[in-house]
Amino acid sequence: EEERTFTNEEEARKAKKEAEKRGLRVTVTKDGTTWRVRIG
């Protein structure tokens, strides 16, 4: 499991799409101005 943080919503969405392409489970949460993308 890996967690990545982004300040840019577009980049967070891109990371989510890429992980889904690899067949991984992805959770995206917004924490104030930060987007957290949890993969795995």
Rank of each mutant, 00 (worst) to 15 (best):
Lys16Thr: 09
Asn8Gly: 03
Glu9Asp: 03
Lys14Asn: 11
Val26Gly: 03
Val28Thr: 02
Thr7Ala: 08
Arg38Lys: 12
Leu24Ile: 05
Thr7Lys: 07
Ala15Trp: 15
Arg4Tyr: 15
Gly32Arg: 02
Val37Arg: 00
Ile39Tyr: 06
Arg25Asp: 06
Ile39Met: 05
Arg13Tyr: 15
Asp31Ile: 11
Thr5Asn: 06
Arg22Val: 06
Lys16Ile: 15
Thr27Pro: 00
Arg38Leu: 12
Lys16Phe: 13
Thr27Asn: 05
Trp35Gln: 11
Arg13Lys: 13
Glu1Val: 14
Arg38Tyr: 10
Arg36Glu: 04
Thr7Trp: 08
Glu11Met: 06
Leu24Arg: 05
Ala12His: 00
Arg36Thr: 13
Glu3Tyr: 09
Trp35Gly: 12
Thr34Ser: 12
Thr34Asp: 14
Ala19Gly: 04
Glu1Arg: 08
Val26Gln: 00
Val28Pro: 00
Gly23Trp: 02
Lys17Val: 12
Arg4Ser: 07
Gly32Asn: 04
Arg38Glu: 09
Gly23Cys: 06
Gly23Arg: 02
Leu24Tyr: 10
Asp31Ala: 06
Arg22Lys: 10
Glu20Phe: 03
Lys14Phe: 09
Phe6Pro: 01
Ala12Arg: 00
Arg36Val: 15
Ala19Phe: 11
Thr29Pro: 00
Gly23Val: 01
Thr34Gly: 11
Asp31His: 07
Glu2Asn: 09
Lys16Val: 15
Leu24Gln: 06
Lys30Met: 08
Gly40Asn: 11
Ala19Thr: 02
Glu3Val: 12
Gly40Ser: 14
Lys30Ser: 13
Thr34His: 14
Asp31Pro: 00
Phe6Gln: 01
Arg25Asn: 08
Arg13Asp: 10
Leu24Val: 05
Asp31Trp: 04
Lys30Trp: 15
Glu11Tyr: 03
Trp35Pro: 13
Glu10Ala: 11
Lys21Ile: 09
Lys16Gly: 13
Gly23Pro: 00
Glu18Pro: 00
Arg22Ser: 07
Thr5Ala: 07
Thr7Glu: 10
Ala12Gln: 01
Glu3Thr: 09
Phe6Ser: 01
Arg22Phe: 05
Thr27Phe: 08
Glu1Thr: 12
Gly40Glu: 14
Ala12Asn: 00
Arg36Lys: 13
Ala19Asp: 01
Thr5Arg: 07
Arg25Ala: 08
Lys30Ile: 07
Lys21Ser: 13
Gly23Met: 02
Trp35His: 13
Thr27Trp: 08
Thr34Leu: 15
Thr34Gln: 12
Glu18Ser: 05
Lys21Asn: 11
Trp35Thr: 14
Glu20Ala: 04
Thr5Leu: 12
Arg13Ser: 09
Lys30Gln: 12
Val28Lys: 00
Lys16Asn: 01
Gly32Ser: 03
Arg36Gln: 05
Gly40Asp: 13
Val26Ser: 03
Ala12Glu: 01
Ala12Ser: 02
Thr33Lys: 12
Lys17Leu: 14
Gly40Trp: 15
Glu18Gly: 03
Phe6Val: 03
Ala15Met: 07
Asp31Ser: 07
Thr33Cys: 15
Lys17Phe: 12
Val37Glu: 04
Arg22Cys: 07
Val37Gly: 00
Thr7Ile: 07
Val28Asn: 00
Ala15Gly: 01
Glu1Lys: 09
Thr33Trp: 07
Leu24Glu: 04
Lys14Thr: 10
Glu20Pro: 00
Val37Phe: 02
Lys30Gly: 06
Asp31Leu: 07
Glu10Asn: 08
Leu24Ser: 03
Thr5Ile: 14
Arg25Ile: 12
Glu3His: 05
Val37Gln: 00
Arg36Tyr: 14
Arg36Asp: 02
Arg4Phe: 15
Ala19Val: 03
Glu9Ile: 10
Glu11Asn: 04
Thr33Tyr: 12
Gly23Ala: 02
Ala15Gln: 03
Lys16Pro: 01
Lys21Tyr: 07
Glu2Ile: 14
Glu2Trp: 15
Arg4Gly: 05
Asp31Asn: 06
Arg22His: 09
Glu9Arg: 07
Ala19Met: 11
Glu10Gln: 10
Arg4Thr: 08
Lys17Gly: 08
Val28Asp: 00
Arg13Val: 13
Thr33Ala: 12
Arg22Met: 10
Val26Leu: 02
Glu11Trp: 04
Asp31Glu: 11
Glu3Ser: 06
